[in-house]
Computed example of a mutant assay.
Amino acid sequence: MRPRHYVIALSIMVALVLQIVPLPSQADTYRPDWVLVVLAYWTMALPHRVNVGVAFISGIALDILLGTPLGVHSLVLCFCVYILAANYQRLRNYSVWQQCVIIGLLSAFYHLLSFWLLHLLNDIFFLYEYMLPVVTSMAIWPWVFWLLRKLRRQLKIV
């Protein structure tokens, strides 16, 4: 098989690694949602290949890697990818900067829903630091978008 058949899976694996790579405690609160951003790109670019099932499997892997209760991230990622897949034709027509706002709203939804689920399961309390990755997820979106789009076009992934 050609390497282009593995690009989507490899990019999701790289996002999973970036999600768990150790960072200093000051920088860790700003860690972007790498898995959400990569899944968002592939869902908008190729909704027939990356869908809710891929989000579920990625979420289960993220739950295992982060040690959260099994199913929390998978449920939240499934909701986010479903929203993107239902509106991908509209979202593709937005500029990258408008998509940054959409990614920010999606990331805020991701964090609020995962907090709510973890609050029900573990009785944690809300801190404003939970929402700081929204800003960095918005900031990395243009670079992730351009990198993955260049990769997709060069390898002719359809």
Score class of each variant (00 low, 15 high):
residue 5 H to N: 07
residue 7 V to N: 05
residue 8 I to A: 01
residue 13 M to D: 11
residue 15 A to R: 04
residue 16 L to Q: 08
residue 17 V to E: 08
residue 17 V to T: 11
residue 18 L to K: 06
residue 21 V to L: 15
residue 22 P to M: 05
residue 22 P to W: 00
residue 24 P to Y: 03
residue 27 A to L: 09
residue 31 R to N: 06
residue 32 P to Y: 00
residue 32 P to C: 14
residue 35 V to D: 07
residue 35 V to E: 06
residue 35 V to H: 05
residue 36 L to V: 11
residue 36 L to D: 05
residue 37 V to Y: 01
residue 38 V to T: 12
residue 42 W to S: 00
residue 44 M to L: 15
residue 44 M to S: 08
residue 46 L to N: 01
residue 49 R to S: 12
residue 54 V to Y: 06
residue 55 A to K: 11
residue 55 A to P: 14
residue 57 I to Y: 06
residue 57 I to G: 13
residue 58 S to C: 03
residue 60 I to K: 13
residue 61 A to D: 09
residue 62 L to G: 01
residue 70 L to V: 14
residue 71 G to L: 04
residue 76 V to S: 02
residue 77 L to P: 00
residue 78 C to H: 06
residue 79 F to H: 05
residue 79 F to R: 07
residue 80 C to Y: 01
residue 80 C to Q: 03
residue 82 Y to L: 14
residue 83 I to S: 00
residue 83 I to G: 00
residue 86 A to P: 01
residue 90 R to F: 12
residue 92 R to M: 13
residue 93 N to R: 10
residue 93 N to D: 13
residue 95 S to I: 09
residue 99 Q to T: 01
residue 101 V to F: 11
residue 103 I to H: 00
residue 106 L to G: 05
residue 106 L to M: 11
residue 106 L to K: 03
residue 107 S to E: 14
residue 107 S to M: 10
residue 108 A to V: 09
residue 108 A to H: 09
residue 108 A to P: 03
residue 109 F to Y: 07
residue 110 Y to D: 01
residue 111 H to V: 07
residue 111 H to T: 09
residue 112 L to E: 09
residue 114 S to W: 09
residue 117 L to R: 03
residue 120 L to S: 15
residue 121 L to N: 10
residue 122 N to C: 12
residue 122 N to A: 15
residue 125 F to I: 10
residue 125 F to G: 10
residue 125 F to C: 08
residue 129 E to W: 07
residue 134 V to Y: 07
residue 147 L to Q: 10
residue 148 L to R: 02
residue 148 L to N: 03
residue 152 R to K: 15
residue 152 R to F: 14
residue 157 I to C: 07
residue 158 V to K: 13
residue 158 V to Y: 14
